[in-house]
Computed example of a mutant assay.
Amino acid sequence: MKVQQAQYVPGLDLLRFFAACIVMIFHLVFWSWAFPAGQVAIASHGVANFHDWTTFAPFGWAGVQIFFVISGFVIVVSAERSTPFKFFVSRFTRLVPGVWVCATITLLAWLLIDANTRPLSLLAMYVRSVAFFPQGAWIDSVYWTLGVEICFYLLVLALLFTERRRLIQPIMCGVGLASTLFWIGFTVAGMDRHSAPFELFSDVQWSRWAQLTLLQHGVFFAFGVLLWSRLVQQPSRRLTAWLVLFAIGGCLQIAGENSLKLEKTGVEFSPLLPCAMWLGAMAFFCLVVTNNAKIQQLPIWCLQLLRRLGLMTYPLYLLHNVTGGALMGAFVDWGASTPTALCMAVAMVMALSWWISKVPEPALQKSTRALFDMLQTRWQTSDRAEGVRRAG
């Protein structure tokens, strides 16, 4: 079944919210004790005790890969009907105001807990975060994904600016192919973990430049772009073949990242569960897109709830790690059991994310759009005046 036109897909808001939740559970329930050098462990003072919760929690990081696929799909839909200026404004207002609010809250959380971090260091991390500096350290380690997202946006913006919109799909096929070939090479080299090729691949694997050039995660953005082409436009065997290839590449990337978690924590992991989680999420993705017309007929309150969950996702992702960890640690210090502290921290982060998505974020987005509209009007007026002057 083929979706007749690109439009809002409520089911993707539910998938986005699910991805944010499993990342949150991963950080608060597993990373908080398994990786003592991590920010969530520092923020929670290492008091979490979830050593028996190892069935699902260790694999929630695969939510990030789900985010990247959704971005590939949503951005190409946005680019299809947008000018370069409108695309830039839409991405700026989507990313920046939320970071301004959430980074400020995270800074306050750091200042309120005894984390043995100098205020000047925190200020530097805060400035890097609100300025979207591509290199850390950031006020919260989850901000690493923003630079990756922005690099994808810049690629699409460049194609819009040069009026080469039609090249989005073939170029993303190239990006996805390069990423897939890298992970194939990593997997093959990994058969001998003491070999020089594996050491080379390992050095590249988690370097920041490999992230920003989309070598690491380009396969997921490409998968999202091709899902749009396959589900929204005309399906073809060629697109299906590309999707199968990128599904393999995505699983290889997840298996590679799984090995990193093993190295950092010393806990045994099988890559099968995170791969299954991601593939299951992709099956759900296809289901909600192909049945979007039916989903749109749900009661208004249900559609509004799905939309609110989608809007909460961004602040929830930005706040859960440090702020959620600080809250959980504080509740344990105040005498709550670890499971109770977790539930209370999750509830408070959820409530805070709902408030941000409801009050300060839309207000800042509205002001930002108004500023860009004013600048555009002035630029157009100046352009017309210059044209009249030259004609005269």
Rank of each mutant, 00 (worst) to 15 (best):
K264I: 08
F88S: 07
A345C: 07
G185F: 15
L160G: 01
I42E: 11
G256N: 04
L167F: 10
L157Q: 07
Y143T: 13
T377I: 02
L316P: 00
R94D: 08
Q233V: 10
F50T: 01
L243M: 15
V289Q: 04
A247I: 09
L375N: 13
R16G: 02
S259I: 00
L122Y: 01
L112W: 15
E386F: 15
G250Q: 13
F67C: 05
A79N: 08
V23F: 10
V74Q: 08
E257F: 12
V99K: 00
T377K: 02
C21H: 08
Q169C: 00
F161A: 13
P299M: 02
I70W: 15
M350C: 07
W138C: 09
V332M: 13
V349H: 00
L262P: 01
V29M: 14
A189M: 05
W33F: 03
Q4W: 08
V69D: 05
F26S: 10
R307Q: 14
L273K: 10
L239K: 10
G185Q: 09
S141V: 06
L181D: 04
V89Q: 08
V64W: 05
L239P: 07
F68L: 15
R128V: 09
G147P: 12
Q296Y: 02
Y153F: 14
D13V: 05
G266F: 00
T187Q: 10
F201T: 03
G310K: 07
P315H: 04
H194D: 14
T145C: 07
P119T: 11
P58L: 12
V148W: 05
W183C: 03
A48V: 11
A347Q: 01
Q169F: 00
Q304I: 00
Y153E: 02
V142G: 06
I150D: 05
A345W: 04
G185L: 13
L12P: 00
S236L: 09
L272Y: 06
R237V: 05
V388N: 11
I168R: 06
M374I: 06
L306V: 03
L245H: 02
T106P: 01
F87W: 05
F220P: 12
L352V: 12
N49F: 06
Y126A: 03
R164V: 11
W100S: 01
I248M: 10
F73P: 02
H51V: 01
E257C: 04
Q169R: 06
M350Q: 08
D373H: 09
L318I: 00
E199Y: 15
A330G: 11
R308C: 02
M328Q: 10
A370K: 15
W138H: 06
L120K: 12
G176W: 14
L146I: 04
W278S: 07
K261H: 05
L316R: 11
Q233G: 15
A347I: 12
L260Q: 04
Y143G: 05
V64Y: 07
A37D: 14
L159Q: 01
G335Q: 13
L226Y: 04
G72I: 12
K86H: 14
A37N: 11
P119S: 13
V127L: 14
C343N: 01
W301T: 04
V349N: 09
N292D: 06
H217Q: 12
